[in-house]
Structures are given as structure tokens and as C-alpha cells.
Design a binder for these strands. Structure first.
Length: 805
RNA sequence: GCGGGCGUGGCGGAAUUGGCAGACGCGUCAGAUUUAGGAUCUGAAGCCCAAGGGUGUAUGAGUUCGAGUCUCUUCGCCCGCACCA
């Protein structure tokens, strides 16, 4: 006989051990089986341990993975550790403990917490990005990128704290000041390794058409890549042989240019500094701009600032018009060409700037009042004041002017992307060393593959080096090496890779995590790739998701992986907020600890609540009372053991309910509508309570449906019922659509759009039958008395609406 | 500022995608039961009104026989913005 009270403290560890002993969640090597690869974003093992936010996506995919196993799939549901990163390094700096030591401790803590929650993860395939056997292949990929010309050095600004003399991550900059000492941060230029993701912009865009991602994820990626078609136009710099090249999506407005704007970093400012009469003011402005982040520069766009370059002027290539040149920080060196032609009549930002600086505004597209506001409607406008373009539509004018520019060598049609190349180096210790050396004779040379992995050397101090250098720069012995090419003296690259590196290919390593000869064997990749279902946070949509697609696509192009796209399907979960509705954080004091929840309510109740609390893709505030409610539900399920009666088939009066519940739960799990799936199971339980009894068949079906959500209690009850083997290894229940439908249904009858009565009709009744039933209803007949029935709308299975007057 | 999303009872949310608004749960109240209850079982409940009824999905308009759902407006909130992951 079952225990009187459900005790998760005994039951949960018991089944966790049983699953582990049976190895039931380890993916099988048998490639003849249909496979399913479920992926969750591997966590950064922080010192705080698991947060209640982590288990939401984990439980969701655990449910999917468990359901797939019950449907007969060979499931790969792996876990690993994205363990390089700033917090471990900052902890190391503060306490002088090696980051590897603290990282190992954190990983062990994370793993034990995940096991406590009963996830069906394959712990035999764990990967750790800080393990040399792993970063061996991260370095290998970087070398391939380098060899294919996709890694190059470029001068890029870093955030620099002049007092600490270190480079800072964006996150360490608060209100444009150093997080530690409060000193204002400056942008400082440093030579850095860049990855040419822009070369893959079109492929990354096109690939989106071949995958099943949520629409908002696709949209966000498309907008981030930011493809726009337009033209390059060359303005000449008056009195020189130089051209100022601009990118514009509106070449049709070329006759409306009244000035030009260069980014404050534009190289011509240095080149022609002798000609600039107001150089002091320009220098002052450049300095102010360098103190601002790019974000601030575009955010403050409402109040435009800028300085005119006295002594420099540009010539419009279509009409020879001479226009002034300004510098302003709303023009970014990183987008387009770092220079724009300004058409205040038809661009809002240019209009704001022109009004502020008293510049002329010319109308070239008729349809608005350009003295009042920029006219930007391209659909209806007609060209005016534009020479040979006059009278054309915007669309035709674009074509004609582009042809004109091309024929006369003044510009050409071009595609521009908002996407920028990826700054790939960090002046930090706790990251993958970059496996390149610099030789005076041979230039940058990659390490031979047999010298990989290049181990991260031991250091005394984890503090970043002086002047923003990496701590590795201080290791003279390590830094000085020989060139693999000519054998002469060479210097190692002392910067390390960003944390993105390891997370850009980990899904490949899971397929064959111990492979010594490649990032994974061909056989394993062929079988397991692509990932069938990848769930992660919306916050990773533009960076991690795009970076990993880029690496996978590159590896595909060089024949290292079998699929062009790594993820067949991508979904996203909402963030869990504190009970007060604010983001959970230590400083707000609203962090909820999963250990405490499991201790009070058990892992099953905790998991059930995480799935029941609301729409999976929506942010939701935490409610500990809600966990208690889910525990009550599980207790109710447990007590059904006391209601047990004989019977191995669904009782006739319950057949419809059982089949409806199976259908609802099956469909809702697939649509990630876990909250309504659980609600359906609650209703099922309520129905059985109302019936006062449950038989073995009815209860076993519930256990199968519920076990992906609350696996431990279901195993225990399955065993108590004498079920064969483990419930998680049983077969997912089937429903018969014919048995899901009710014989009769109740339809609302509206009069002039207001519900006035209801009629009961056969479920398959046709419109005439329903209309007759509605008109025969006593209440409706009363309302119709003395009125004219003007219209009768009958929607079978839905509603009747009578329009009377 | 730019890009993406959201807004429904006291609270979390549901609504077969244009057809009964408020499923399911929390909290609340009432009854039953229990030596006891922060346990369990049963029931009530959007708001206004004594009732009949009216009214109700952030705001204002529109389309429709019919709008939480579609279109436009305003307001508010959340995520991302490239060195946090």
C-alpha cells in the first residue's frame, strides 16, 4: 500500500539514482534509431549557483526530451559549462585564487543542483569550454578562420580607464565611468583581431528562410544584419583629388543635398588638418565624441551637435553645387562609409541638424512641406528640383540616378549591411589563448595543428596588465617563442578570445565530446546534426545565435560539418522576475533560491510551477504561493491511490475526457503551452475527484502524461500500481480524435450581438437545424415578439446571432 | 535614439486564432470534516445595481452581424543595441 503522505525527500533521490544506475538518459550510439537532438543554452557556472530562471527553459526541453523518448526516439539532451568569463576572472583578481579552481567548484555545484531537479540530461557528454581538450578545437576553428582570410587585425576602440590603466568590458562601464573607481572612461584605439562575419551577412540572411525559428527571432536577426540596397556616391573634396564616398539608400534625393557630415573619426580630418581653419574646435569635438559610447551618440540624437569644418567643402557630383562639411557624432565610422550626404528635406535626422545649424532645406520630392518637417514618404512622392529626375516617382528616380552615377564613374549600386565585423580579442586572462605568433619576417603565423592546444599559461597575478594589455603580455618567457615558419624569433599574441568563442560551436562537440582527432567525428555529426530543437533567451538572439550560425556555416563551407544551419528550430522563453515584478538581482534582494524551493516543496512541485506559472515565452513574476499550489496538485494526484477501483479500460463515461486530455497535453507540449497542458491535467484530476474513483487505466494514463513534468512522483506511483519498468520508458499514450468529440454541444444564441440564451444541439447539426432550435427557444421567442428578424447568422459549432429591429 | 515584444479580475494567467471574456491556479469568503490545522473535501466570486439589467480586455477612433483578437492613435512596461553571458 502507498505511503499516506507523498514525501519528495525520499522519493526524488530514489528515482534519480534509479535513472542514473540504469543509464536511461544516456544517448545511444545506435545510428539506426530515429534521433532527436534537444539543446538548452549551457550555463555560465557563476558563484551564485542556479537561479530560478535557469530551470524554466531546462524543464521545458526536459519535457520535450522525455516525451520524445516515450515516442521511441534516440534522444540527445546534453549539458555543459560555458566557463570562461569575467566574473571568475574578477573573483580571481579580488581573492587571488586561480579561476580554474573556482570554476571547477562552481561547476560541481551547478551539476548537483541540476541533478536535484531530475533533468534527463546526458551527463556522460558534459563539455567544459575551459578544458584544454575542448579549447583545442576552439583554437583549431580560429586557425581555419585565419587561414581562410576571415580573421584580420584592425584598430578598434576599447573602453579604457585611465586610472586603473585597464581595458573595460561594456558591462564594467557604468554611466560612462569605471565601475570600480568611478573615473570617466575613454575610448582608446587598440589593434585587435576581428572576424569577418560581414562576409557571411547574405548567407546568414538567406539561411533564415530554411529554418523554423519564432518569427520575432527571425525578424530581430534580419534587422540586426540590416541589409539595405542603395548606392555609393563619390563627392569630390574641393581643391583636392580626393573623393568623399558616402552610402545612401536614397540616391534619388541627390539634388537635395545641402551639406555633408563626416564621423568625428573620419581619416580626412587628419589628412587635411592643415586646411581646417577651426582645428581647435574640431579637436575639442573629437575629444568629446571619444568620451561617448556609440549608444550615447545615437541616443542623444535628438539634440544634434556638430562642428563645421572651416576650409573644407564638397562638390555634388550631379550639379556641381558646393556644400559645407560638418563633423557630428551621429555619424558612425562603423556604419556605411563614415560619411553621409545630408538631405534635410527628406531625412529626419538631417532635418533636425539643418534646423539647428540654419542650413538650407531643399524640396526634391513633392508631397509634404519640408520647411515644417522632413518628408519621408517614398511611396507617393514625385521628384522636383532635380534636373533630369523631375517628374519621376521615387522608385524610378532611384534607378535612373544609379544608372547615371555608374555610367559617369561617380558611384554605383551597392548593398550595405548594418552588421559589423566581430571584435574577437580581449585583454584578459581567463579565455582561450589565440594560437598565432608574430614574426618580423613571416608576419602572423598560426601554430601548427600538432602544437594545439596552446595551453593557457599559469600566472602569478590575474590583474589585467598595464595600459590595457592582457596579463599574458607580462609573461616574457611565454611571449617570446620561435616562428613555426622560419624558426626565427617571434612573439605570441597575448590577447585571449571572448567568451563567445566556446559557445559558438559547443553543440557540435556534444555529438562526440571525447573525439581526439577532430571537433567531432564525421559519423557523429552526420547522425546528430542539426540540432532539432534549441531553446534559449531572447537576449541571445542577435549575438550568440548569430555568431554560432556564422561559425557553423563557415565550418560547413570548409566541409567540417554536414549542415549549413546548426539549428532546425529555435524557441525562446521569458525571464522570471522577482515577486515584486522587477528583474531578480542581488542588489534588489528579490532573488529566489531553487534549493530552498526544492527543500520546501520538492523538485516535482518546483518544476510543475515553473511550467504552470504562465505563458512560456512571457516574462513572469515569481510567486512562492504558486509553488505551494502546484505541490497541492501533486498531493491530490498522490491521493488518487486511495480512490483506486478495479478496471484496465477507461470507463465509458470518462472515455471522452481521457482522450481529450491526451490530445490537449500532447499538442500543448509541442507548442510549448505547458501552462495549459498542466491546467488540462488538473481538470482531469478534478473530474476524477468528482467521479469519486479512478481505475488503473485512467490513472496510468495520467502518470504517463504527467511524468515529463513531475517525473519522480510518477515513477513512484507507477511502481505502486505495478507498472512495467519505468514510466519514463513507457510508451506515450495515443488518443482517438473520434473519441474526443462530444455528442451534443451547447451554443450561445445572441440577439443583436448580446448573448440571451443557449440551445443544446447535436455536435454535427447543420445551420438550418441550429437556426430552428434557436428560434424555438422560449427566451428568444419572447425577445422576438413584435420584432422583425432581419438577419440570422449561424456559425455551426460556434454561435448564433439574430439581428432584429 | 534604433530594432523586437508586451498590456485581460485582488494576483499569475486562459480564450480552439474574428464567435459565450475570465479556463486552470494563487489569494479571499462560506459550508462540511477533523483532537488539532497554515491539512482535506464541497461551494461562491470581474465590476456596478436590491432586482431585471447594465458594464467590462491600458487609451481614443475605425472595420465587422460580431473585436481581447484585425487597422490606425496615444500612454505605459519589458528585452537587445555588438567587450555580461
Amino acid at each position: 500500500m502507498a505511503e499516506k503522505m507523498y514525501n519528495p525527500k525520499v522519493v526524488e533521490p530514489k528515482w534519480q539514482k534509479a535513472w542514473e544506475d540504469a543509464g536511461i538518459f544516456w544517448a545511444k550510439e545506435d545510428t539506426s534509431l530515429p534521433k532527436f537532438y534537444a539543446l538548452i543554452e549551457f550555463p555560465y557556472p557563476s558563484g551564485q549557483g542556479l537561479h530560478v530562471g535557469h530551470p524554466r527553459p531546462y524543464t521545458a526541453l526536459d519535457i520535450i526530451a522525455r516525451k520524445r523518448r516515450m515516442e521511441g526516439y534516440n534522444v540527445l539532451f546534453p549539458i555543459g559549462w560555458d566557463a570562461f568569463g569575467l566574473p571568475a576572472e574578477n573573483y580571481a583578481i579580488a581573492n587571488n585564487i586561480h579561476p580554474a579552481v573556482i570554476t571547477k567548484k562552481n561547476i560541481d555545484h551547478f551539476r548537483s543542483q541540476l541533478k536535484m531537479l531530475g533533468f534527463s540530461l546526458d551527463y556522460t557528454r558534459e563539455v567544459d569550454t575551459t578544458d584544454p581538450d575542448y579549447y583545442h578545437w576552439t583554437q583549431w576553428i580560429f586557425i581555419q578562420l585565419f587561414k581562410h582570410g576571415l580573421a584580420y587585425k584592425s584598430e578598434m576602440p576599447i573602453n579604457y580607464c585611465p586610472k586603473c590603466k585597464v581595458g573595460l568590458a561594456n558591462e564594467e562601464v557604468v554611466d560612462n565611468c569605471c565601475e570600480r573607481c568611478g573615473t570617466p572612461v575613454v575610448r582608446r584605439v587598440k589593434s585587435q583581431w576581428m572576424l569577418k562575419i560581414t562576409e557571411y551577412a547574405q548567407k546568414l540572411l538567406d539561411g533564415l528562410d530554411t529554418v523554423n525559428y519564432l518569427d520575432r527571432i527571425k525578424t530581430q536577426q534580419r534587422n540586426w544584419i540590416g541589409r539595405s540596397e542603395g548606392a555609393h556616391v563619390d563627392f569630390s573634396l574641393k581643391g583636392t583629388d580626393d573623393k568623399i564616398r558616402v552610402f545612401t539608400t536614397r540616391p534619388d534625393t541627390l539634388f537635395g543635398v545641402t551639406y555633408m557630415v563626416l564621423s568625428p573619426e573620419h581619416p580626412y580630418i587628419e589628412k587635411y588638418q592643415d586646411r581646417i581653419a577651426n582645428l581647435d574646435a574640431v579637436r575639442e569635438y573629437q575629444k568629446a565624441a571619444s568620451a561617448k559610447s556609440e549608444f550615447e551618440r545615437t541616443e542623444l540624437a535628438k539634440d544634434k551637435t556638430g562642428v563645421k569644418l572651416e576650409g573644407l567643402e564638397a562638390v555634388n557630383p550631379v550639379n556641381g553645387e558646393v556644400v559645407p562639411i560638418f563633423i557630428s557624432d551621429y555619424v558612425l565610422m562603423s556604419y556605411g562609409t563614415g560619411a553621409i550626404m545630408a538631405v534635410p528635406g527628406h531625412d529626419t535626422r538631417d532635418w533636425d541638424f539643418a534646423k539647428k545649424f540654419g542650413l538650407p532645406i531643399i524640396e526634391v520630392v513633392a508631397g509634404g512641406n519640408v520647411q515644417e518637417a522632413a518628408f519621408t514618404d517614398i511611396a507617393t512622392g514625385t521628384m522636383v528640383n532635380s534636373g533630369f529626375l523631375n517628374g519621376l516617382s521615387v522608385e524610378d528616380a532611384k534607378k535612373k540616378i544609379t544608372e547615371f552615377l555608374t555610367e559617369n564613374g561617380l558611384g554605383e549600386k551597392t548593398v550595405n549591411f548594418k552588421l559589423r565585423d566581430w571584435v574577437f580579442t580581449r585583454q584578459r586572462y581567463w579565455g582561450e589563448p589565440i594560437p598565432l605568433v608574430y614574426c618580423e619576417k613571416c608576419g602572423w603565423v598560426p601554430l601548427p595543428e600538432d602544437q594545439l592546444p596552446l595551453l593557457l599559461p599559469e600566472v602569478e597575478e590575474f590583474k589585467p596588465g598595464e595600459d590595457g594589455e592582457s596579463p599574458l603580455a607580462a609573461l616574457e618567457d611565454w611571449k617570446h617563442t620561435t616562428c613555426p615558419c622560419c624558426g626565427g624569433p617571434a612573439l605570441r599574441e597575448t590577447d585571449t578570445m571572448p567568451q563567445w568563442a566556446g559557445s559558438s560551436w559547443y553543440f557540435l562537440r556534444y555529438t562526440d565530446p571525447k573525439c581526439k582527432t577532430a571537433l567531432a567525428s564525421k559519423e557523429a555529426l552526420d547522425y546528430w546534426m542539426p540540432v532539432d530543437w534549441y531553446n534559449g533567451g531572447m537576449e541571445h538572439t542577435t549575438l550568440h545565435l548569430l555568431y554560432s550560425r556564422f561559425w557553423n556555416r563557415f565550418l560547413y563551407d570548409i566541409g567540417a560539418v554536414p549542415t549549413a544551419e546548426p539549428y532546425a528550430r529555435r524557441t525562446s522563453h521569458g525571464m522570471i522576475l522577482g515577486e515584486n515584478g522587477e528583474k531578480m538581482s542581488k542588489s534588489r534582494g528579490n532573488v529566489v533560491n531553487p534549493d530552498e524551493m526544492v527543500d520546501r516543496f520538492g523538485a516535482d512541485a518546483f518544476r510543475t510551477y515553473e511550467m504552470f506559472m504562465g505563458a512560456f515565452d512571457q516574462p513572469i513574476p515569481w510567486s512562492t504561493n504558486g509553488v505551494a499550489g502546484c505541490r497541492r496538485f501533486l498531493d491530490r494526484v498522490w491521493r488518487m491511490q486511495d480512490m483506486l477501483i478495479e478496471g484496465d479500460e477507461y470507463r465509458p463515461e470518462l472515455v471522452t475526457k481521457v482522450h481529450q486530455t491526451i490530445r490537449k497535453v500532447s499538442e500543448d507540449f509541442e507548442a510549448m503551452k505547458f501552462n495549459t497542458a498542466i491546467a488540462a491535467m488538473m481538470e482531469y484530476v478534478n473530474t476524477l475527484y468528482a467521479a469519486g474513483s479512478v481505475n488503473r487505466a485512467e490513472l496510468m494514463t495520467l502518470l504517463k502524461l504527467l511524468c515529463p513534468v513531475a517525473p519522480h512522483i510518477c515513477e513512484e506511483m507507477w511502481q505502486n500500481l505495478g507498472g512495467e519498468g519505468l514510466v519514463c520508458a513507457s510508451v506515450w499514450p495515443k488518443y482517438d480524435p473520434a473519441l474526443c468529440v462530444e455528442d451534443t454541444i451547447e451554443l450561445p444564441v445572441q440577439v443583436n450581438g448580446k448573448v440571451r440564451s443557449r440551445v443544446t444541439v447535436p455536435a454535427d447539426a447543420d445551420s438550418d437545424t441550429i437556426q430552428a432550435a434557436a428560434l424555438a427557444d422560449a427566451k428568444i421567442a419572447e425577445l422576438l415578439e413584435g420584432k422583425t428578424l432581419r438577419k440570422c447568422i449561424v456559425v455551426p459549432k460556434k454561435i448564433v446571432n439574430l439581428i432584429i429591429g
